[in-house]
Nucleic acid binder design. Structure first.
Lengths: 229, 229
DNA sequence: AAGTGGTCTAGACCACAAA
DNA sequence: TTGTGGTCTAGACCACTTG
């Protein structure tokens, strides 16, 4: 005996069959019940293994339709959205934060569109600088729905980034990553040459279909966002 | 009766308790057995729900240590690594591909380091251009371990990007995203102004600890990588 | 040593989609 | 209509870690 069949071992064997083309791309693979019989385990164990592979993009499963090997295995990479302070400290540098401005302003059209706002109601507009070892690390330009962070919430010492992460669990939204040029304002704030290439992230956050915040994070030159799979 | 308790409903209720601070950050939550009794369901159902929340970064679970609400909920975003052709076609544009060069060359030091190569053995060096509606979309500069794609594999019409995705299921590796400036060579190939800000991705791929390929994808100006959570 | 999550089993019913 | 995956149950044993 070699103990009970684990779902990891079933997954590994299924991976092997996909890699070796024993189960070629597009082909239908045996039912869970058949595989359970073959591996001598419960169907739930097979289910757990195949569900894992489907989540990773290697299999496509449909009720009644059965399970097929994905024609184009979609690699899914995950990256962690950390608080900027943790990002800096994780690099072994000292973190600093400076709030540059905080006022109510009517949002420009792109921000209104990103947050799906209809009216021109003013939003709370923040500009802040995140520092690493006293040097500019990232510029944060944020628009916040005042209903979620009124005047009583102050961002002098705690960044809006951190406050929102800690106070808005379970929200959805979108990201977009792109490159942008340092204009006069950015080069001044980030203390870099005008015309430098800067990595930037636009992010919108919703909670239960309510718009919460839109933010642009522009990083100082040389920044890389790293992840593994 | 309202039917069996689903793991999704358990997860939703747990989410609510975290959001409302009924389970505050850092606090230990009841055992699976207690929650199962409270919800009137099997422990496996509670386990499925809490495991899901833990994978999303909201809970931290340890055998014997119990389950705690994460102090800093790490948001995990996932993005799909698609074949560039699909990316272009998904935008409703015509895809084109042009192989610019293909030769065996000793890799430069950064590539050797990224692939953890010890010797100076030559790699297959490819340069190719991906087109959208006949305009440059993305420049691909790739180094491939010849053991995995010898001379018999030709990349005239099928991009190495696509060939590798289709032929190397189950591989690991790393990504890094950054911004870079268009130098003379890049501006010529991507038909953009010198000094433009370009979004770029470095990627390394390993299969079973064997180095497979290192690639730099440099996108034409204006490209955004988009994802949702 | 003991408590907690991780997993497996065997069986059952259900939801969905294909035929 | 029917076949397939999705899920729930009740019980059991095990692995890991903390005390």
């Amino acid at each position: 005996m070699d103990g009970p069949t684990t779902w990891q071992s079933v997954r590994a064997e299924a991976q092997r069959r996909i890699r070796t083309r024993e189960w070629p791309p597009g082909a239908q693979i045996p039912h869970e019940a058949d595989l359970a019989a073959e591996f001598g385990c419960a169907r739930a164990t097979v289910n757990r293994a195949l569900r894992d592979l489907a989540e990773a993009g290697y299999l496509e499963r449909r009720r009644k339709g059965g399970t097929r090997v994905a024609l184009t295995p979609v690699r899914k990479a995950t990256f962690e959205i950390s608080i900027i302070r943790q990002d800096v400290e994780g690099r072994g540098q000292d973190y600093g934060y400076r709030l540059l401005s905080d006022a109510l302003e009517p949002p420009p059209a792109p921000v209104r569109a990103a947050l799906k706002l209809t009216g021109p109601a003013p939003l709370r507009a923040l500009t802040a600088l995140h520092l690493a070892d006293d040097k500019p690390f990232c510029l944060e330009r944020r628009w916040i729905n005042p209903a979620f962070a009124g005047d009583d919430v102050r961002f002098d010492t705690v960044s809006a980034n951190e406050w929102l992460v800690r106070n808005l669990a379970f929200s959805g939204g979108g990201f977009s990553f792109y490159a942008t040029l340092a204009d006069a304002e950015l080069s001044g704030l980030l203390e870099c040459a005008p015309g430098a290439a800067l990595f930037a992230i636009d992010r919108t956050t919703f909670s239960e279909a309510q718009p919460i915040t839109a933010v642009t994070l522009t990083y100082a030159p040389g920044y890389r966002m790293v992840t593994e799979i």
